[in-house]
Simulated assay, not measured.
Amino acid sequence: MQVNHLLEENSIAGKFVAQLRDVEIQKDRMRFRRNIERLGEILGYELSKQLKFSAKNIKTPLGNSEVQLPESEIVVCSILRAGLPLHNGLLNYFDDAENSFISAYRHHPNNDEHFEIVVEYLASPSLEGKTLILADPMLATGGSFVNVMKALKQMGTPKEIHLVAVIGAEEGISHLEKEFPEDSKLWIATIDKELNDRGYIIPGLGDAGDLCYGGKLQH
């Protein structure tokens, strides 16, 4: 798997990540969602450089111009619910893409540190031969990405797979490298070193879904 780490180099994206982490700024849910959306736009732009392009002639008021336009058939799939603002950011740039939505959540059957990733809802077009962009802001253990990809197999085999995340842990990335095809690509803003005993990224930012949309009852 090719890992593309955005903040290996300094950029304005670092400001948006910092605001996502800040416990005071997090109190503004609209700003939190907007910063995830902004990072979706930036990551989408970087991702676009590796898509397939072809030459097209367009007519301007003063003549003709040859331009390079993307020709990949894109499906943007977000993991509900935290993935929605990231999905919107990607869709701002890939505005003619098809869309897929899937749910995944952590289920703690014994109310302890052990959990399993449960996938329940899926709405998707065919993925056969298309470019799949799978989006989830938090890449902790990697379990959500892996289980969601298993659920998506029934929709066909993508030509290429791009994973998009805001913050990830090294352990989760290692898990993805074992489970996803070698030619898959991960686009991530920043990478933290560890997980706590409940599988949350440290220092991370907390629960992205709750910070976007408010708290939830636990399963």
Rank of each mutant, 00 (worst) to 15 (best):
E128F: 04
E24P: 01
G215K: 09
F32D: 13
A140F: 01
G204H: 09
L6Q: 09
L47M: 11
N35E: 13
L139S: 15
M138C: 07
E98V: 00
A169P: 14
G156V: 00
L195S: 07
Y105Q: 11
V166W: 04
V76S: 01
K178I: 04
K52T: 15
Q50Y: 10
A104W: 07
R31L: 14
F94E: 04
P85S: 02
Y45S: 06
E41P: 02
D197N: 13
K153Q: 14
E9M: 06
L20S: 13
F101K: 14
T60F: 00
K49D: 04
V76Y: 06
N110F: 12
P158M: 01
L195F: 03
L69I: 09
D112K: 15
L127M: 09
S72A: 06
F53G: 02
N35I: 09
I173G: 10
S103I: 13
R31E: 05
V166T: 12
S65M: 15
D192M: 05
E66V: 10
P125H: 10
L62I: 14
K130Y: 06
M149F: 11
I79A: 03
E128P: 00
C77V: 15
G209Y: 08
D136L: 15
S103G: 08
G129Y: 01
R29T: 10
V118L: 03
E73G: 01
K185T: 07
L43I: 04
L6G: 04
C212V: 10
V119G: 06
T190D: 14
I79V: 15
A135V: 13
A13D: 07
G143M: 12
M30W: 01
G14N: 11
K27N: 13
D207N: 11
E182Q: 08
V23R: 10
D28E: 12
A13N: 01
E160F: 00
H114T: 01
N88Q: 09
D95F: 14
K49M: 06
I79F: 07
Q154M: 03
I173V: 13
Y93N: 12
K15E: 13
G63V: 09
L43R: 10
V146F: 04
L186D: 06
L127G: 07
K153M: 01
R38W: 14
G83N: 04
L132F: 02
S126G: 03
P137C: 10
E160T: 15
G168P: 07
L176M: 08
R198K: 15
I191E: 01
K27I: 01
Q19L: 12
R21K: 12
L211T: 03
G14Y: 03
Y93H: 14
G214D: 03
E9D: 11
G142Y: 12
L139A: 13
E194P: 00
P85Q: 10
I117Y: 11
L90E: 08
L80Q: 14
H108D: 02
I42M: 11
E120Q: 11
Q19H: 08
K185W: 04
A208Q: 08
L47I: 09
F115P: 03
E179T: 12
A135C: 15
G40F: 09
G215N: 11
D192E: 10
K130Q: 04
G83P: 13
L211F: 04
L20C: 15
